[in-house]
Computed example of a mutant assay.
Amino acid sequence: MNVDERLLEKLEKLGMIEIAPDKKEAIKKDLDEILGFVENISELNLEDFDKESTQKITPLREDTKHNDPSIAQKVLKNAPEAREGYFIVPKIIE
Rank of each mutant, 00 (worst) to 15 (best):
E52D: 10
I93A: 03
K29D: 13
E43S: 15
S42Q: 14
A20S: 12
G36T: 00
K29C: 02
M1I: 05
I71T: 04
V38E: 02
E5S: 08
E18T: 12
P80A: 06
E43P: 08
K23R: 13
L44E: 11
L31M: 01
E81D: 03
E18M: 09
P21L: 06
A79V: 10
V89S: 07
V75G: 03
L7V: 14
D63A: 15
R83W: 05
E12H: 03
R6L: 03
T54R: 06
Q73S: 11
K10V: 05
D4I: 04
P59T: 09
A82E: 01
K13N: 07
R6F: 14
S53G: 02
R61Q: 14
D48K: 05
R6P: 00
K24R: 14
K10Y: 12
A20W: 04
I17Y: 02
F49M: 13
I19H: 00
K28L: 00
Q73I: 03
D68M: 12
E39M: 03
T58C: 07
V38R: 03
I27K: 02
A79G: 05
R6K: 15
I41T: 06
D63K: 14
E47Y: 03
E12W: 00
K56S: 08
K23A: 07
I57F: 06
K10E: 12
E43L: 10
N67C: 03
Y86I: 01
E84C: 04
L11M: 06
N78C: 14
D48L: 08
D30G: 00
D22V: 15
L11Q: 05
Q73E: 15
L60G: 13
A26V: 10
I92L: 04
A20N: 11
P69K: 10
